[in-house]
Design a protein around this nucleic acid. Structure first.
Lengths: 161, 161
DNA sequence: TATTGTTATACTCTATAACTATA
DNA sequence: TATAGTTATAGAGTATAACAATA
């Protein structure tokens, strides 16, 4: 358990990290906003999947996922094939054009980070990646059922029994 | 200079960090969206300042800053006093109510992070904060004048002369 | 009746451009 | 003429709720 002061500082840094994300976003192709890019990259990384699985990986509502997926499908970067096992579901698969787009996106993000982080050591980059992955993991199910935080009265007690 | 593979992984983690930010945002008071919160926290941290300075700290366009500031001013959390030295400028100052709101926000973010990161060590939290600060710094002036990334052809050369 | 996915609506954040007032 | 700040407009991302089709 870290000191409150450190949590406070982390909160500040997290709130400011949007600037970096916007910086990365500005480097994206004009026809591929960040939402579309995220869909493509996840499909490349994890392989074909259903909408619900993708929504989970994106950590956004399925309605949002549906819109992003509709966009990349319009671009012919993915196909939405009916799932023979469940006619309500659709299986998302990258097309060859989609795979080419992923390659382009990967190349772009590598080039952008190489540009801005040229003076970072390999170890520092890995450390940051690792900590960010852990952070995501710790927040994990904050969208799930009982994600409501305790009220100010609760949990403020120093040492839970 | 890190390996491309590491940059690729970092890009993935950064693109996914939005989920954590949204998680933090869900904990905010209903009358204080993240844009307003950022304004208040920066004023508390750095003291009174002009719009242009705030826009720089927020790393967003001044038009965006102006809207956020208008919102917190409506709430009476800040005052916008004319700058005697330059009648075009306005000096932003927290009101007592604004300071109270900052205290509430700080408490909330600490509670949220304490909740989700209860198994992190102090050192890990500090490390992540430090790396995020450095990341922001490295991206620094990516909004500035010649922030345009070199074209695919350039900079790909391994060792610039 | 519950679940998968889509669509309609609304809200927040952001950027560009046009504008006012002052330097 | 240039700069500080505001406002209008537009675009992207997200969430909630209502809906359709299927399990």
């Amino acid at each position: 358990m870290a000191a409150q002061r450190q949590y406070e500082e982390l909160a500040r840094q997290l709130s400011a990290i949007g600037a970096v994300k916007r910086g990365l976003g500005r480097g994206l192709p004009a026809d591929c906003p960040s939402g579309s890019a995220a869909v493509l990259v996840l499909l490349a990384r994890h392989g074909e999947m259903r909408m619900s699985r993708l929504a989970e990986l994106l950590a956004v509502d399925m309605s949002v996922t549906s819109r992003h997926v509709a966009h990349v499908a319009e671009k012919e970067w993915i196909h939405r094939d009916p799932d023979p096992a469940d006619k309500r579901s659709r299986i998302l698969r990258l097309t060859p054009e989609g795979k080419a787009k992923v390659a382009e996106l990967t190349d772009l993000s590598i080039r952008t980070l190489t540009h801005y982080l040229h003076d970072w050591t390999d170890d520092e980059v890995v450390q940051l990646s690792t900590l960010l992955a852990r952070l995501r993991d710790s927040f994990g199910d904050c969208r799930a059922a009982s994600a409501r935080l305790p009220h100010p009265a609760e949990e403020t007690t120093r040492t839970p029994a």
